[in-house]
Simulated scan of single mutants.
Amino acid sequence: MSTILLFSPYQSFSQQDKFEIIGQTMTHDPTICALEPNTTILDAWKKLSKYTRGAVLDWETQLNQQTRTRDVWNMELQLIPLEKQTHEIKCDITIEFLPKPQNKEEEFVVLGYTINNKQNDADIVIYFLNIELERVDYTEPANDPGYYYSIVEWIPSYADYLIPSEPLTMTIKHEIGHALGLGHYISYDDDALQKWQDGVQRPPSIMIPIEPTKVISADITPLDVEKLIQIYGRDGFYSEEIVDEIYESKIGHERVALPDWIRNNAKWWSDGIISDKDFASGIEFMIKNDIITVEITGTNSFSTEQKIPDWVKSNAKWWSEYLIPSEEFVKGLQFLVKSGIIQV
């Protein structure tokens, strides 16, 4: 379960900021169902519908812009009124709006949470009542007689109206990010964290943990979009079909299964960490053990005179970084076999 919680103070470590990754949660274009809440607040459903529609559209638009595609990344939003919620609703992502947490311990701490039950099945809960802070001034006696401490305390309470549009939309975008496979964006920079919480500096990600009583202003950034592209590839939610964490594609007329660990080999090879011969030997091993199947036309073993073309190495690098689909990487493997660079 992914939950927006209060920040705990971080120690200053020499660690880089990072994403917590949930992983690929969708295997097709997701259908998102937003459920109308049972509330007497005027125009609440109208506003919540608008904010949800904007959040979904923003994710779609930025994913398509980042991959320079059109209508590849699609999410269908269905707005479900109260009277239709008794029927069976088939959704990949369900968004439920509640006034406030039912658990007292989560009050004024949690703005929403996401539960990824399994692939294509995520539940989001968004709390929509605004939080007001009342200032209370009082004194307490000090240790020295005749002296007192002057104390200011801010007491939170739930109002009878919606959270303003910007933070509410931000929360919806944040939770959709969790449902699509992004964890929180974690920073070990105390100074940056404070600036984000105080609204002085815009955070680098919509996925930072959010404190309800702070003025954080976060939005979807290229960093968030690129991380999703690394999870799914550049061709939308359909780009990689996961079966038991095996990436599948086609080569020739046969089906080829590409275990995810091959990405590490491809990256190491493209970075010069392992040699052409070592990389070719790894591919040869997979072919001989029926991990992948290709048409056999060459019988020559690898030699140092048979240099692997640069375009094959470029494809390997781009594939290891999720910049091209498996099909393009596999074309390089097919070439290596047909040209006899790899012996099978």
Rank of each mutant, 00 (worst) to 15 (best):
I93S: 05
W73P: 09
K50M: 00
E96K: 15
T40A: 08
Q66I: 02
E88N: 13
Q85R: 09
I89T: 07
R68N: 14
K46F: 12
L98P: 01
W45C: 03
C33M: 06
I93H: 03
E105F: 13
D92P: 03
P37F: 07
I80Q: 08
W45H: 04
D29C: 08
Q66L: 09
P30Q: 01
E60G: 02
N74I: 11
E96S: 15
L48W: 05
N74T: 06
M75F: 03
G54P: 00
P81F: 05
Q66C: 10
W45F: 04
T94R: 13
T31V: 15
L57Y: 07
K104G: 05
C91W: 02
T67E: 10
W73V: 05
I95V: 14
D29N: 14
L35H: 12
Q85T: 10
W59D: 07
E60Q: 14
C33W: 02
L77D: 07
L77T: 08
V72F: 08
P99W: 13
T52V: 02
C91V: 08
G54W: 00
T86K: 12
K100H: 15
K50L: 06
Q85Y: 09
T52P: 08
L35K: 12
S49V: 00
E60L: 01
V56A: 04
G54N: 10
E105P: 04
T39G: 09
V56T: 05
A55P: 09
F97S: 11
A44D: 12
E36G: 02
R70A: 07
N64G: 11
C91G: 06
V56H: 02
L42A: 11
S49F: 00
K84I: 07
R68V: 01
T31W: 01
K46W: 02
